[in-house]
Every structure is written in structure tokens, then in C-alpha cells.
Amino acid sequence: MDLAYTAEEEEFRARLRAWLAARLPTLPPQPSPDDWPGRRAYDTAWQRALYDAGYAKVHWDAPPTLRLIYLEETERAGAPYVGANFVGLLHAGPTIAAEGTPEQRARWLEPILRGEEIWCQGFSEPDAGSDLASLRTRAVRDGDAYVVTGSKLWTSHAEVADRCELLVRTGPAGSRHRGLTWLAMPMDAPGITVRPLRTLAGAAEFAEMFLDEVRVPVTDRVGDENDGWRVTMVTLSFERGTAFVGEVVACRRTLVDVAAQARANGRWDDAALRRRLGRLNAEFTALWRLTQWNVSEAAATGGVPGTGGSVFKLRYSHARQELYDAAAEVLGPDALDLARPWTRERLSSLSYTIAAGTSQIQQNIVAERILGLPKGRR
């Protein structure tokens, strides 16, 4: 893989940088983290601005190098990221682009790109997190609809979502991987109850969702009935392989800010801290190179990331925690102040070794699918 950018790609960078410089000063102040209707409006307005300027499709249709340049420049400029619709833009949208029918792609992809529809994820359940194949939410075919009953947990942004990428059991009890189906459930269907969950950092970005005989049209099924595990693996490949790309860029910028703060408050004289920050700089530089590889590999193999995403997710989760631990060391007693962004990010970072597949699951994937080791006893 050639990691150098061409003259045409640098021209794209210059155009994007100029557009950001002109557009960002016109944005209104960001709403409160707890104001989800306000955050939805803010995030979707930004997405519409990207769409009108011709940058919205960079996540899906642009060459990988342009996507990487886009992420570098938007993060450098401090532009909004995907926000409340990260599931639609980074998980569901790419899955539908890869697995949906032409009618589904025409019906759902443009509204996501235009900022008109927000998606949430309904995979995990109270007794089915890492062992996703043990989920119990049931969908029974009734004519031209599935009737869904069950519950979901950690449903990201469910309170403001229009649709949910929903994994359900359509096969017999005990069918595990062979009996799952991937549905695009409309969130305004009767029988859906959403109850927000407050995290350790004080945010309510997750919810538990209860489904009581919710009717989902069969035309909203992505892939075949009982083929949902394979479709879900496509979703998780995007979630682990490319969805965290922007966050790597953000972490590299945060690391620079942490070093600047250490110089300002005298902590830079601590040789152990300097070594720690230097090692983290090497970590995130390597993660960015791995990101470039994963994005390029996905483009070369039909758009779906490979098992390198598990390598990335495993190391990135821990590196992010180490970064914000270092930030807390630099802040000293101020690290206890929840009003500080680094403090909130430190608390949030604790979830990264669980979200998108636990570190233990990623270790199993690396061992079995990359190193070729035999499966461990379950």
C-alpha cells in the first residue's frame, strides 16, 4: 500500500480545508450533551451541509485515500463528527450498501446521507452481549410482516432514532447463529418502549428497548431469513474495522493537547510522563497506519473490512484508556471535575473494551482467524 498522497488527492485536501474554514465559523453553538433533540438537529444539519457540499458520500463511495484525508482535515479543523447518527453512517448504511437490495439501497441510503434519518443499533440483550448468538428477541412471520417480541440493551441513540438495525431470532430455540435475521425496524411502530440509561459519565446516549408484538414488514429484512448472523458479521466488520477511524485522529490531537498541558503546568519535567506520552504517540501513529491499511483493504475487497479490524479494535480500546489515564495524570486533582471533557472521556473510555465486541472476543478472533490456532473450549 502506498501511503503517499497524489497531487489530485492533495487538491481535494485543499478544497476541503478551504470549505471548512468558510463553513465552520457559521455553525451555531453545540447543544448540551443531555439535549438529545437539540443534538439530533445539530448533527443532522451538519450532515445536510456536507451533503450539499458534496462531501457526504465520502464514508461509502469515495476512494479510501480521500476518506482518510477527509477525516484528517475535519478533525484538524475541529468540525463536528457523525454524532447522533454514527450507527446510520458507520454501521447500518455500509451494511445496506453491501447487503441490501437495490430497492432498500434506494429507500434508505440517501436519507441517511442527507441527514434526514437517524438509526440506532438493537443487537445486545440483557443475557446476550458478547455471546450475541444466544439472543432471545423473537420474530414470528405473519403474512407480510414479522411480529417481534423481546428486549434490547445498550441501544445507542434509540430515543431520537427513526430506524433500528435489529437482530432477532427467527429460527427455533437453540438455533444460535443459524436462526438469526437482520431487520430494519421503524422506530415509530406500535409496541416499542424506549427507556434511557445514564452512563457513569452522566450521559444518556444508550437505552433499553422493549418490543411488544412490533410488526416489521418483511420488505425491511436485509438478507435472507435466518442469514442474519452473516449480515451481522458484515455490520461488525464495519464497526470494528472502519467506524473508529475518526476517533483515532481525535486521539492523536488529544495527545498533542495533553503534552501542551503538561508543559504549561510543569508536569513535563517528569521523565516517566514524557516516556509515557512518547509511547502513546508511537501507539497512535501505528494505529493510524493500521487504519490506512484496513480502509484500503476494505476498498480492495468489495468494501467490507477484514479481520484486521479486530486487531485494530483490540489495541485501540486499550490505547484510548491509557491516553485518558495519562490526561488525568497531567490534570492532577482537576481530573475529578466532571465538567472537564478529558474527565468525561476517561470515564467513557472504560466502555471501549466492551463496545463493538469485548477485548476477549477480539482476542479469540485474532487467535483463530489470523493465527490459525484451534478454538478454545467453550
Rank of each mutant, 00 (worst) to 15 (best):
G143P: 06
A145E: 15
Y146H: 09
V148S: 12
T149D: 12
S151R: 14
K152M: 10
L153R: 15
L153M: 14
W154E: 14
T155W: 14
T155R: 15
A158K: 03
E159M: 13
D162L: 01
D162K: 01
C164V: 04
G171H: 09
A173C: 06
S175A: 01
R176W: 14
R178H: 13
W182C: 09
P186I: 06
D188P: 10
P190D: 12
I192Y: 02
V194F: 04
R195W: 10
A201K: 01
A203S: 08
E205F: 13
F206Q: 03
A207K: 02
F210S: 03
L211N: 10
E213C: 04
R215M: 01
R215W: 00
P217A: 04
V218T: 10
V218M: 11
V218H: 02
D220V: 04
R221A: 09
V222M: 10
V222Q: 01
G228A: 08
V231I: 08
V234M: 10
S237V: 02
T242A: 11
T242K: 11
T242M: 04
A243F: 13
F244H: 14
E247N: 15
E247G: 14
V248N: 15
A250G: 08
C251G: 05
R253V: 00
L255P: 09
V258M: 12
A262C: 02
W268A: 09
W268S: 07
